[in-house]
């Protein structure tokens, strides 16, 4: 009896029971449909998103009658005309797009050495420290972090006090464009490092040693070997940072102090300040389109396969 129990442990019995239950609910002859069943939750979620988009598209085609605060029954493209012609929206779109591009570039430049050191260091202690430092900001929400920067960079903040000690007059470090960019880079850095690290891990260290023995200095090793092989990581990280920055709300709102609105802030204003859901929906749709075009452009230029999808070429 005892021997039998060790040969067939309790865990296995539980698994057997569960398998029996599963077989009763989903008989073996349905097996061919199992992959589709597993796809179902994701399809449902994406489907809901599509439903929402349809709703928004519907709203975007109705104009608000400012005297009655009623939406028109008939469709018109007046909202799109307003979004494309009013200078305010153009300024906001430009500001968001340029910020997204700058933030992506700067973040990738900063994230690479961090990820490289984290992957290649021989000291487990240093690797642990870098990992913890990377994850710590995730535990603090974006809004709290932005307020943190207000405290540090504000007129009576730590930075200005420190500058005062060496005789520099207080500077306005917040409520401007650079402050928003700074906040966004700081927010995006962990995402970029997390996306880059696996791509760098996939590059055998031996390749770098080989490049060295073949006559390449570390700079040329980086340009000709590490960079091309890390491309999937750079593209993945770039796409994530680009879309997250383009659509960000909290950092421009808090560190921009209302003067540095991004598209998301403009949408918020339309929905909750002027209550023009039609125009808000229009702006939302245009943001989706802009993001899709950018991501599509990246995939068209570099191929979706570079996102470590498809077969590895090594």
């Amino acid at each position: 009896m005892r021997a039998a129990r060790t040969a067939y442990p309790l865990k296995w019995r539980i698994m057997d029971t569960l398998e029996g239950v599963a077989a009763a609910i989903w008989p073996a002859r349905f097996r061919r449909a199992t992959p589709y069943l597993m796809l179902l939750p994701a399809v449902l979620l994406v489907g809901l998103l599509v439903l929402g988009l349809i709703q928004i598209a519907d709203a975007s085609l109705r104009t608000l009658d400012t005297t009655t605060f009623q939406f028109s029954d008939n469709y018109s493209i007046a909202n799109f005309r307003r979004a494309l012609t009013e200078p305010l929206f153009l300024v906001v779109a430009q500001r968001s797009l340029i910020a997204a591009l700058i933030v992506t570039t700067v973040t990738l430049v900063f994230a690479f050495p961090y990820a490289y050191l984290m992957v290649r260091t021989r000291s487990p202690g240093l690797r642990k420290f870098l990992l913890i430092a990377l994850f710590l900001p995730f535990f603090i929400g974006q809004v709290v972090r932005a307020y943190g920067w207000l405290i540090i960079l504000g007129n009576q903040g730590m930075v200005n006090e420190a500058l005062g000690l060496v005789g520099v007059a207080p500077m306005r470090l917040i409520y401007n464009y650079p402050a928003v960019l700074f906040g966004l880079v700081q927010y995006m850095l962990p995402f970029a490092v997390l996306m880059l690290a696996p791509a760098l891990t996939a590059i055998p260290e031996e390749l770098e040693a080989a490049a060295g023995s073949l006559g390449a200095s570390w700079v040329r090793t980086f340009i000709h070997v590490v960079l091309p092989l890390a491309r999937p990581g750079f593209i993945g990280a770039g796409v994530v940072v680009l879309t997250l920055s383009l659509t960000d709300f909290a950092v421009p709102a808090i560190l921009g102090g209302g003067s540095q609105d991004f598209i998301a802030n403009a949408i918020y204003d339309q929905f909750f300040r002027t209550s023009d859901q039609g125009l808000g929906a229009t702006l939302a749709l245009m943001l989706v389109a802009l993001g899709s075009i950018l991501v599509g452009l990246v995939f068209a230029l570099f191929g979706a396969g570079t996102l470590a999808m498809g077969r590895s070429r090594a």
Partner: peptide, 13 residues
């Protein structure tokens, strides 16, 4: 020095 590595270390790209 020319070196042939244990796992060859050819550049896959």
């Amino acid at each position: 020095i020319g070196m042939v590595f244990q796992r060859l270390a050819l550049f896959p790209h």
